[in-house]
């Protein structure tokens, strides 16, 4: 029972990291980011090449993955969503949904074109095992978890304590109001998107020894991140942190008692129940139905 709990916490930590970016992009830019999982893929490939081609130590390679996510996120936002915003005449959510789907499609197939459908993985990043409260846990998992928690803490402090972070939160609450207070919306949008991509790429890099890089790897984290976000309510960032751990617990419990094949079916049943009884999410504000 306790090992289920430890597994759930370790897994949930990574889900929080991935889902937070998704929630942030929805909250600030109102983009249902279907391409979010592809930044996980970018992080994994970047980390792999950082280790194998440039001989980086594991920690540096993970930071390199995050940096790659940050830069590519900014470039992609400038090329697509920024252009769309200049021209958009209503129907923003549908249009961005499709643009994001296009981005996801391009990145996935580009990865397959450049790197073929092979797995690019490493056996270990830090290596070894550690004793934790009587359980043996691999150091890689622990390290990934601590990187995730450190990133979350730094990110949270950035949002709460810095002027730019406050500007992001202000835009997510009221865009026009923030604009009137002198916030430059375009810059905030680009920054938000690239930060969200960075968080996801960081997760992809840190988990390289568990999920090797391959072209369709972005689907599972994307799916899970949407699960978290629907569970707690769209755009609710504090609740996303709780939600990530809840989903980790649900998945680990389902795998432990029913087997891995049923994990997805359990997730779907939870979503159906949420949509039936509390469509706004567990912690969501009431939405008009």
């Amino acid at each position: 029972m306790a090992d289920v709990f430890v597994g759930a916490v370790l897994r949930g930590g990574m889900y929080v990291l991935i889902a937070l970016g998704l929630s942030l992009v929805w909250g600030v830019m109102k983009i249902p980011n279907f391409a979010h999982g592809e930044f996980y893929l970018i992080g994994a490939y970047a980390c792999y090449f950082g280790i194998k081609s440039f001989g980086m130590p594991a920690t540096l390679a993970v930071l390199f993955a995050a940096f790659t996510g940050l830069v590519l996120g900014a470039v992609i936002e400038k090329l697509t969503f920024c252009q769309l915003r200049k021209r958009s005449k209503g129907d923003w959510v549908t249009n961005t949904f499709l643009v994001a789907a296009g981005i996801s499609f391009i990145i996935q197939n580009l990865a397959q074109y450049l790197f073929t459908a092979n797995y690019f993985g490493v056996d270990k990043m830090w290596g070894g095992t550690r004793k934790l409260a009587g359980f043996t846990v691999s150091t890689d998992r622990l390290a990934a978890f601590f990187i995730a928690m450190a990133a979350l803490l730094i990110f949270w402090l950035f949002l709460r304590k810095t002027r730019i972070g406050n500007a992001i939160l202000a835009v997510s609450e009221h865009e026009t109001g923030a604009m009137l207070m002198g916030v430059q919306i375009d810059r905030i949008h680009t920054l938000t998107f690239s930060l969200s991509s960075m968080l996801c790429a960081l997760a992809g890099g840190a988990l390289l020894s568990f999920t090797p890089a391959y072209p369709t790897m972005g689907l599972q984290p994307l799916y899970t991140a949407w699960f978290v976000v629907i569970l707690v309510g769209l755009g609710n960032m504090e609740a996303t942190i709780v939600g990530g751990f809840i989903v980790g617990l649900i998945e680990v419990t389902a795998t432990y008692y029913l087997g891995a094949a049923w994990q997805n079916a359990v997730s779907l049943s939870v979503i159906v129940l949420i949509l039936l009884f509390k469509p706004a999410g567990l912690f969501g504000k009431k939405i008009k139905v």
Binding site: V99, G102, I103, I106
Partner: peptide
């Protein structure tokens, strides 16, 4: 390559 072009066209 075909899917990459599809994606670019969609965007």
């Amino acid at each position: 390559l075909k899917y990459i072009i599809y994606g670019i066209m969609l965007i």
